[in-house]
């Protein structure tokens, strides 16, 4: 995992994600999910590239079931972009690097 991507938990989600100064991208994933593992290096690369623009977090849904429930995650990998504490948009499934960049920048 790149240093630009931070693991996130239920305890710190509000402070780190919802109250983030920058837009926050959250990748909901699990170790048993093949496409999540395929998406991981893409997220690492985008996080490093867009470090000044967006904060990137990963939420393990096994370890944080309440967060998965709160955000009604029914499919992973799921990306949610938060801005000022609110969900701006979401995408599910493994997508390409360009699609992740577009998801962050254009929606």
């Amino acid at each position: 995992m790149s240093t630009a991507v931070k693991p996130e938990t239920e305890q710190t989600f509000e402070a780190n994600v919802l109250k983030s100064d920058k837009p926050a991208l959250v990748d909901f994933w699990a170790s048993w999910c093949g496409p999540c593992r395929q998406l991981a290096p893409t997220i690492d690369a985008v996080a490093a590239e867009l470090e000044s623009e967006v904060s990137v977090f990963k939420v393990n849904v096994d370890e944080n079931p309440n967060l998965a429930r709160t955000y009604k995650i029914q499919s992973i990998p799921a990306l949610i972009l938060f801005k000022d504490g609110a969900e701006l948009r979401r995408a599910t499934g493994n997508i390409s690097k360009q699609q992740v960049v577009d998801f962050i920048q254009k929606g």
Binding site: A30, W32, C33, G34, P35, C36, V61, A68, K72, I73, Q74, S75, I76, P77, A78, R90, A91, T92, G93
Partner: peptide, 17 residues
């Protein structure tokens, strides 16, 4: 509804059901 209850990957999403 893809990702909101419709899925093409049981091993990824079965967990949520």
């Amino acid at each position: 509804l893809m990702g909101h209850g419709v899925s093409a990957c049981a091993t990824c999403d079965g967990f949520f059901f």
